[in-house]
Amino acid sequence: MAKLNVNGRDVEVDADGSTPLLWVLREHLGLTGTKYGCGIAQCGACTVHINGQAVRTCVRPLASVSAGDEIVTIEGLSEDGSHPVQQAWRELDVPQCGYCQTGMIMASAALLAKNAAPSDDDIDREITNICRCGTYRRVRAGIHLAADSLAKDASKAGGAA
């Protein structure tokens, strides 16, 4: 039995160590918000956070993750879907078919966590998830909107202090 910490909960899974984390999340833990798109880390639909970093789980074996690693999936990004990126996505109606969007949101949230005000060049470099519907223009706008909203929250917090 492998021990994992997923969305703040300690869980045990009975899976071979070679099983990609994607399939552990989807098939053992029922967390289907993380998607299978390519299986070779090209499309990013399977993106989750491990210790705050965006990770493509379709090529990440279970055995490479330890009980101390904090795994966050789209289901755990926020308690009630209120993460600034999720709110920006709603505000701009970013998703079309939506299948890639959970990975897109996780990649964007990880980018904002390390770079609170990403430039267009930063986005071009860091966001390499594939969307076939072609939502890229709104994804970019959504990241900027979420960054603005985070900045406002930060300045509010600063003002209160």
Partner: peptide, 13 residues
């Protein structure tokens, strides 16, 4: 849109 940003949307897969 909402279930598509929370991961709740159930696709065929």
């Amino acid at each position: 849109t909402d279930p598509k940003v929370t991961g709740a949307q159930v696709y065929g897969a």
